[in-house]
């Protein structure tokens, strides 16, 4: 049994990503969407927390949102896998439930 978490806010102005990281369980997935994609930046104030949690949780980001915001590909954490909307749909089906960190 696992959960797909979605986070849609920038971690630099909001605690949703951190709270999500602290509440998810090993085997869960965390998908960064909308402004949440900023959480995938490497060398940021939040990246250590993401990298540490990536040991037992899989991180994804919605590719269209990252591209729209001009996130430089070279600066994205290698631990975060890009997916499209179709990948988003698959993630929802592969996990038992989804939880939005609104």
């Amino acid at each position: 049994m696992s959960t797909l978490h979605t986070v849609n806010k920038s971690p630099f102005g909001d605690g949703a990503l951190l709270s999500c990281i602290e509440h998810c369980k090993p085997g869960d997935g965390v998908l960064l969407i909308e402004d949440g994609v900023y959480g995938a930046l490497s060398g940021s104030a939040i990246s250590d927390a993401v990298v540490a949690r990536a040991a037992d949780v899989t991180f994804y980001l919605l590719e269209g949102d990252a591209k729209a915001r001009g996130l430089p590909e070279g600066k994205l954490l290698g631990q975060v896998t890009p997916v499209g909307y179709d990948g988003f749909v698959d993630l929802v089906t592969e996990h038992d439930r989804s939880q939005s960190w609104l």
Binding site: T3, H23, K25, R97, L102
Partner: peptide, 18 residues
């Protein structure tokens, strides 16, 4: 506790957030 809250969340069929 936070750990217990995580367990509660993981034990649901439907999670609605507000």
């Amino acid at each position: 506790s936070r750990a217990e809250m995580a367990d509660i969340m993981a034990d649901q069929d439907v999670v609605l957030s507000f």
